[in-house]
């Protein structure tokens, strides 16, 4: 069934003499490549120019704080379970007295690491998070020369209060609605 007319019907006929010596064909090909020399170059000079990215672009993660500056993450580990690339590890800890400002819940992640070399930026962690703590942002994970530099700890993941990261595009109503209707494993307990 032909949906488009882009495909070309191939006829397996005997080649004519002119075709068999190939030279006209080669000449035609050369002209085609040459013509491309004078076409507009679609190259984007990356660090200077940046390409417009999609609104839902999934880049580097961020661990959000609430408006009070307390970390939302409660180290439930659902993100780690959901992660298909097994890039997330964490260690949970009990909140001590006096740390209410720092951590929103009684439990918190004393260590939270994402291996950016493993991460495939699928966004499942974000979907899994019941506390709306982890989000993917439109930031790009910068390259380095050492492997261990790609293991992002809390120092890189948790947002600084003075540089809050806007994740409002991800917190649309639709999304909230979607999340609400999600039947999470822990909801069933």
């Amino acid at each position: 069934m032909q949906l488009t007319n882009r495909s070309k019907q191939v006829a397996d006929t005997k080649m004519t003499w002119l075709e068999r010596i190939y030279l006209p064909g080669i000449f035609k090909g050369m002209m085609i490549t040459l013509s491309h020399a004078f076409k507009k170059k679609p190259t984007i000079q990356y660090p200077e120019q940046k390409r417009a990215i999609a609104p839902l672009y999934r880049g580097q993660h961020v661990l959000k704080r609430d408006d009070n500056g307390a970390e939302r993450c409660t180290a439930c580990g659902l993100c780690a379970v959901a992660c298909p690339a097994e890039a997330i590890t964490m260690i949970a800890a009990e909140r001590e007295k006096g740390q209410e400002k720092l951590y929103r819940e009684e439990k918190y992640a004393s260590m939270y690491e994402i291996n950016m070399l493993r991460c495939i930026f699928c966004g499942l962690c974000e979907e899994a998070c019941p506390k709306e703590a982890i989000f993917l942002t439109d930031r790009i994970v910068p390259s380095t020369t050492k492997r261990k530099d790609f293991i992002y700890g809390k120092d890189k993941l948790v947002e600084k209060m003075d540089q809050r990261i806007d994740v409002s595009v991800r917190q649309t109503n639709n999304l909230a609605e979607f999340k609400k209707n999600q039947s999470f494993a822990h909801n069933k307990l």
Binding site: T33, L34, H36, A37, K39, K40, K41, P42, T43, Q45
Partner: peptide, 10 residues
């Protein structure tokens, strides 16, 4: 680069 609509080393 030029023949492939690119810029090449710059």
């Amino acid at each position: 680069a030029v023949l492939q609509d690119r810029l090449g080393p710059n």
